[in-house]
Design a protein around this nucleic acid. Structure first.
Length: 612
DNA sequence: GTACGATTTAATGG
DNA sequence: AATCGTAC
């Protein structure tokens, strides 16, 4: 097969040379076909077209990890379309996405075309563009390259590894009836939920007390909290019970208490807008603001994308095209005024751990005033994306913050009061990101205070608190955690959530927070005992390093797979040889009270409840 | 009614 | 060393 590195012109005027260009998404194909015009046919592969045969032996571990591929269900149609059009064409441009999976799609298509022997006399080019503009597409066509075999090899390592883990471990679970499936991604997701539940169970709440003071100065009311009593610094956990609170109160006095401002600290602070949406942050924010599930968010986003209203919704990048930034800045200036347009565009660095950056951030495609006519869900999500995108290119919000120390005139207690006033809206005029902890520092006003001012403490409110266990994961916070760990991809976050529910490992309560089921406890305990390395959160990170090495040609594919498979195979063999009774003992020992909450049997080892 | 074969991974796309 | 669905 010959891949030429030099193309003939992309649109020879009046000459009907036919060029075929293949992309992944049909709606992208439609757009690009318009850009290229006569002489070009643009066809979508509609994602991957070929995959491992879903049966045992598709990765031959005994023979250099040779892989058995098959055309995916329903994709024969696309292949036939590509071949039919190719027959009429002189050249084919493989323009799948510029990332690892996209390179693999190009390779698979080329491999299929070679096998079908339909490339005789045809030129083949690999082209890549990062945005769907006429300029970018034409530039890509002018600068074709060959398929990057290192990147394809990295894909194959990733693909083989996922298969070997999933198809290696799952059958062990069926035999013992411990679960339906295991995998590099889903099993870590389950582990995270189980680990969190264990943290919650072992959490011992600690009592602490706070003392709030209602204050009055110059006829204005405000609140302060105790930070020092009888010369002792009072921190969050200092007052541990009612007796200690009473002791402290004896030093503070009984309202009304005469006091004085002894220190003032004034500061100007500012707050930056959040980065534009990625798949993960869109799912998080749509959950917090609209109460959408990950699945619902993605299916609504899909519709907006198909309507041509937003850019691609499966992305891990936060960058915006230069054209979009210009349009957004013009819009902000027109609607909100120049004070809301930063001197230079705000730039957001993509911080996702293994971002592939094949796409832009999720943003509206155009920025005129006309609001499209949309269904309820579509309108809500589009509005959210609209506001977030506009806000991300607006100036900072500015605040004046004041902190005051107030001492009682008996010099035995000091209170601290804080106030914050927004002096310039900036991006907050349009949009503010929600937070998971609703400790969202609400604006609080203080009257104008100076050192020496008289203050009257009119009321003291002692309050009992207990430290709180960490919160159970929601879909949004679990997706966020997985992304931080570099586990899973934008295209899979929503399906990971359904997989762990469908497999019966976790369930969602009324507030849609994840709890492990007894099956979830079992599988987590089993995997932690016999496959700990594979479900360790660092495993995927290490794997990504290996994949990077393969992409860069620093490590060879077969060597990388062998390094992974040798220990994994012995783990699988080891687990296969373990007697069921041993597994039951192990799981019972770790998990007895979750497995058999209503059982009566006592575990001989620890006196806990025992089942089976 | 019994025997037997399939079950399973993650990541593209809609 | 389980369970479910399908073929016989």
């Amino acid at each position: 097969m010959h891949i030429f590195t030099k193309t003939n012109n992309y649109l020879p005027k009046g000459v009907s040379i036919m060029n075929l260009l293949i992309v992944e998404s049909p709606s992208k194909a439609k757009t690009i076909e318009k850009y290229l015009g006569a002489g070009w046919r643009v066809i979508a592969s509609v994602g991957h077209v070929r995959d491992l045969v879903p049966e045992n032996g598709s990765v031959d571990t005994a023979h250099n990890f040779e892989m058995k591929w098959q055309i995916m269900a329903g994709k024969e149609k696309q292949i036939k379309l590509i071949i039919d059009e190719l027959k009429k064409a002189d050249a084919v441009y493989l323009a799948s996405d510029p990332d690892r999976e996209g390179e693999a799609i190009a390779w698979h298509i080329l491999d299929i075309l070679k096998a079908k022997k339909v490339l005789t006399g045809k030129k083949v080019y690999r082209v890549a563009f990062h945005e769907i503009t006429k300029k970018a597409v034409l530039a890509a066509i002018e600068n074709p390259r060959e398929i990057d075999q290192n990147l394809v090899d990295a894909y194959m390592v990733r693909r083989a590894l996922d298969y070997l883990i999933g198809f290696g471990i799952s059958p062990l679970l069926w035999r013992r009836n411990l679960g339906k499936s295991a995998g590099r991604v889903q099993s870590v997701a389950v582990k995270l939920v189980v680990d969190r539940e264990r943290e919650i169970e072992s959490f011992v709440p600690v009592e602490y007390w706070s003392l709030a003071a209602a204050c009055n100065a110059h006829g204005a009311k405000f609140n302060a909290s105790l930070v020092s009593a009888n010369g002792q610094k009072i921190e969050k956990m200092t007052i541990g019970n009612k007796e200690q609170m009473d002791a402290v109160l004896s030093h503070v006095g009984v309202p009304e208490i005469a006091a004085t401002v002894i220190a003032i600290d004034k500061k100007k602070t500012s707050r930056r807008a959040a980065a534009p949406f990625t798949t993960s942050t869109l799912q998080q924010e749509a959950a917090r603001k609209l109460y959408f599930s990950s699945k619902r968010t993605m299916s609504v986003a899909q519709k907006l994308y198909e309507h041509g209203l937003i850019t691609y919704m499966r992305t891990d990048a936060t960058n915006l095209s230069a054209d979009a930034v210009n349009d957004i800045r013009a819009y902000i200036g027109r609607i909100y005024g120049d004070a809301f347009v930063p001197k230079s565009p705000n730039i957001y660095v993509t911080k996702s751990k293994n971002a592939q950056e094949a796409h832009e951030a999720i943003r509206p495609t155009h920025f005129d005033d006309a609001m499209p006519n949309l269904s309820g869900d579509e309108e809500k999500l589009y509005n959210l994306i609209w506001k977030r995108t506009i806000a991300c290119q607006m100036t900072n919000a500015e605040f004046d913050s004041v902190a005051a120390d107030i001492e009682n005139n008996a010099h035995s207690a000091i209170f601290h009061a804080v106030g914050s006033t927004r002096t310039f809206d900036g991006f907050m005029r349009v949009y503010t990101e929600s937070r998971d902890d609703d400790a969202d520092a609400a604006e609080s006003k203080l009257p104008a205070l100076s050192v020496g001012d008289a203050v009257v403490i009119t009321e003291l409110t002692p309050e009992q608190h207990f430290t709180q266990p960490p919160a159970r994961y929601t879909e949004a916070s679990l997706v966020k955690k997985l992304e931080e760990l570099g586990i899973g991809r934008p295209s899979t976050y929503a399906t990971i959530m359904s997989t762990i529910v469908d497999r019966g490992y976790v369930e969602q309560d009324k507030q849609r927070r994840f709890h492990p089921t007894s099956g979830g406890w079992v599988i987590a305990a089993y995997l932690a005992k016999y496959f700990n390395e594979l479900v360790d959160v660092n495993f995927t990170a290490k794997t990504e390093d290996t994949l990077d090495d393969v992409s860069n040609g620093k490590q060879e594919k077969v060597a990388a797979l062998r390094a992974f498979w040798t220990p994994t195979e012995s783990m699988i063999d080891g687990a296969r040889g373990i007697k069921t009774t041993e597994i039951i003992d192990e799981i019972n020992h770790v998990m007895h009270h979750h497995l058999f909450p209503d059982g009566n049997d006592k575990c001989p080892k620890c006196g806990g409840k025992l089942g089976i």
